[in-house]
Design a protein around this nucleic acid. Structure first.
Lengths: 335, 335
DNA sequence: GTCACAAATGTGACCGGTCACATATGACTT
DNA sequence: AAGTCATATGTGACCGGTCACATTTGTGAC
């Protein structure tokens, strides 16, 4: 008397084969949509699968094919920032559509060591490819240096591939042009951290646009993306005589508005402020924030496309993603 | 003439064994810190591993042990909300510390079908356990109904386990008590969506605290967590004669402040407003927001603890997580 | 009738670990 | 010297898929 196999762990391809009275290989073929299966046979196999509640074992397939159908996402400490969070949601969705799973790794701090640990973790995990949300220049460099056994796509780091990142330079330009057109001539900037490529791209775009009209920023303060740092940045701008400020993200703009307010200046009457990102809250700041909108969701989808096509060897093309100016009440003509 | 194995794919445990002149099993023992390995032997094996740049193959181990050392995280559409985003970062960190990987699945919409798809995806993936960030009551019910072959821990859904969720009821109480103590007697509430358990818990805590002093809310409006919905909620409160409002999260509080301002009311002079969460931006709203702080990070760590101990069969205990009142400028005594 | 060839299915090895079990070595009794 | 036991290592099967190859069946051409 043998113990019923189904009483033990989950059924295997052989159990299904036995029930459908075919060979295990035929079951495998049904599983993989191979041609040359008689419809009647396929039916029998499918029925057997259903009856046994069969679920293919990913590990076994991975072992045999050495393709895990898994992509790793490397996420820096900024996980709770609005941008990255919405990007990875898009990544997961796009990946699952294509039959891929997403495994996560988030290095605690922005240290090269932590970074390579996290990468290593993903590679050990057997991912087929990696999407690195590596907005810090150092981080991107670290990733690029480690020569990885799998393809790596870097996003939010102005990686050179214009499809994979909102064009931050253009965004900076839009901000400068908007303020200039309103009549402002003394413009300041609160930038993101110097080692974030998005921050430098936004800044450069801003400076270039000013240079084009023969001007330049009267002051630049560096923040760390947080509202708190935007608040503190005001110190550095107070005596610059600026009438308008471009903040590299919405949170810092919020902090700056707060500081300006504490200093007795009204926005936009005494000081125009423009942000970047267009977070869902920006429309409800006081005053509602003029900002540059970017499409994080698109970035995530594009990243998956790009990675999977690198895996399949079928290169894909697409246009770069342009940010958009959204005018609200925090900017106006100077008094 | 045989092709050098190293030229092909990555080295296996047998390659290491050959180089170290031991059996493959000995290598396996070194890998798993088994006792009864002579130090000299261990050295030789480790050296061989280093030389070959050996990396254990997770799929093979998973296949042999039927433990994937992977936990799935089920994340609802709310991924870009501040809370969930910081929670999963904590989950990943805690999991990696324990040698587990995290795979993600985020159902696009809050539909039972999408939910069970996502769960199924994770189970197929071979996860050892699942952490479901399932704040919607419907979602939680859906997860609970599907009888899963692996343990599932639900967080942010007041699952009954007080260790795994900030005590939202207490948070609601704190808000009510703060406003009452300031002298407010006509209190309103902007709640989260009715089918989120956190929303109802906050609301109930608020109502209970008022009932304790023989009162009750003069108006309740339901929002969807967004600042936009907070703005719209003002409509429903305008004529209630309320002097203070408890908003179920900071974003809605922001929207409400905006609406109040548009209606010519000053905060807190004409209307006190208190939020919930203490997002990093809340301190920089105008006025800076009084709110209830909760520790998302802790929730994430606890969830992993709880899941892994369920897997190991070693139950863990811990105190429930209490939220904290943070007083800023958006609340004051009524005029 | 048989040969050729496509369609449909079966056979056993293999991926890279772990498991259960067998075996070899040394130290310590008796 | 033989027996016992802990220590240290080796052997081959196995997990559940896929792969390369072999085999059987059906169909039309000659």
């Amino acid at each position: 008397m043998t113990v019923n196999a189904s009483a033990k762990s989950s059924p295997s391809i052989r159990d299904v084969a036995k029930l459908a009275r075919v060979s295990h290989q035929t079951v495998s073929r049904v599983l993989n949509d191979h041609p040359y299966i008689r419809p009647a046979t396929r039916e029998r196999v499918l029925a057997a699968m259903a009856e046994l509640n069969y679920r293919p074992n990913r590990a076994a397939r991975t072992l045999a094919t050495s393709r895990s159908h898994t992509i790793g996402v490397l996420l820096t400490a900024s996980a709770s920032h609005y941008g990255p969070a919405s990007t990875i949601a898009a990544v997961e969705e796009a990946a699952r559509d294509r039959g891929y799973s997403v495994v996560l790794a988030s290095p605690g701090r922005v240290e090269v060591a932590e970074f390579s640990d996290a990468l290593d973790h993903l590679i050990r995990e057997g991912v087929d490819g990696i999407i690195a949300v590596a907005p810090q220049i150092r981080a991107a460099a670290a990733v690029a240096k480690l020569h990885n056994p799998v393809p790596v796509v870097m996003i939010q780091c102005d990686s050179g591939d214009p499809r994979l990142s909102v064009d931050n330079r253009v965004g900076g330009k839009l901000a400068a042009e908007h303020l200039w057109r309103l009549g402002h001539r003394r413009l300041a900037h609160v930038s993101g951290p110097g080692d974030w490529s998005e921050a430098t791209a936004r800044r450069h775009g801003f400076e270039e646009a000013l240079a084009d009209v023969g001007s330049g920023p009267v002051a630049i303060a560096e923040g760390d993306w947080s509202a708190e740092s935007g608040y503190r940045a005001f110190e550095h701008l107070r005596d610059s005589g600026c009438t308008a400020v471009f903040c590299a993200n919405d949170q810092m703009a919020l902090g700056l508005i707060h500081a300006a307010h504490d200093d007795g200046r009204r926005v936009p009457r005494d000081l125009s402020i423009i942000g970047f990102d267009d977070t869902p809250e920006a429309a409800h700041y006081l005053p509602p924030l003029t900002t540059i909108r970017q499409d994080f969701h698109m970035v995530g989808r594009r990243a998956v496309d790009s990675l999977l096509s690198a895996l399949d060897g079928t290169p894909k093309h697409g246009r770069s993603i342009h940010p958009k100016l959204v005018v609200r009440d925090s900017t106006s003509a100077p008094a």
